[in-house]
């Protein structure tokens, strides 16, 4: 079953009297459990697309279904609830909450978003912190961690609620080459273990090489490859 179905979605931004089309008639599908990447130059619409899939923004036109829900119709509150239930986020700058320890950052969505009870919550956190290799640093605060360690924590936080889909916006952009490779391997292994779907927006060719499906965006339009993979119509591989 497709986890994300986008049908002719467009997104316009209005800046004063100027209307800018960030996405133009984009259609694609993302299957469950896949590793998908959107690539393209800066300004091509990658982040806009991730924001739409992440219910942080709404398309100007077109239909977008995520995890079986028409997300274009969600208001602010319902959007937040949907994100908490179905989505996980990994950010380029890690975006950990500085006043929380590693374990507390991972625990945050369970407490503040899902309201999972104590014992179950602690077990999940311990499992995820262990899985991303941060068990020894669980009581450290973000400012005591390296960039790679922060991103590991961010991955654990994104996965702790067992979301259907993890959206990762340039997750390796602020990491050195070696750490970026480790992070990519970690995400892949988490996908393999948990079956979570990952959607990336990236420039990083190591991610592009690692993913199952690549969509290329240029000037807000999806560029279709000449030879899409079997059963992957509408998707393009670079």
């Amino acid at each position: 079953m497709d986890l994300v179905v986008a049908e002719s979605i467009s997104k316009d931004y209005v800046n004063g009297k100027v209307r800018i089309r960030a996405l133009n008639d984009v259609s694609f599908r993302v299957g469950g459990g896949t590793f998908v990447s959107f690539v393209g130059p800066s300004g091509s619409g990658k982040t806009t697309l991730l924001n739409l899939i992440g219910c942080l923004d709404r398309p100007t036109s077109g239909r977008l279904r995520v995890a079986g829900t028409d997300v274009a119709g969600l208001d602010r509150r319902k959007g937040a609830r949907f994100r908490g239930r179905h989505l996980g986020f990994i950010f380029q700058d890690f975006n950990l909450i500085p006043v929380l320890t590693v374990a507390e950052n991972v625990e945050y969505p369970l407490v503040m978003v899902r309201g999972v009870e104590g014992g179950k919550r602690r077990a999940k956190v311990a499992r995820l912190v262990e899985a991303v290799g941060m068990a020894d640093e669980r009581d450290k605060f973000p400012d005591q961690l390296s960039g790679g360690q922060k991103q590991r924590v961010a991955i654990a936080r994104a996965l702790v609620t067992e979301p259907d889909l993890v959206l990762a916006d340039e997750p390796t952009a602020n990491l050195d080459s070696h750490t970026a490779g480790l992070i990519i391997r970690l995400m892949k292994s988490m996908r393999d273990t948990l079956g979570t779907t990952f959607v990336f927006s990236t420039h990083d060719m190591r991610i592009v090489d690692a993913v199952d499906v690549v969509h290329t965006l240029r000037d807000g339009t999806l560029v279709k490859a000449a030879d899409p993979g079997p059963g992957r119509e509408g998707e393009s591989r670079v």
């Binding site: 509150r77 937040a80 609830r81 986020f89 975006n95 503040m112 978003v113 936080r157 994104a158």
Partner: peptide, 15 residues
Amino acid sequence: REIGTMAAIGTQPGR
């Protein structure tokens, strides 16, 4: 940014 992160990962405005 921190507030944006909290909101993005699903924290309700009331919280």
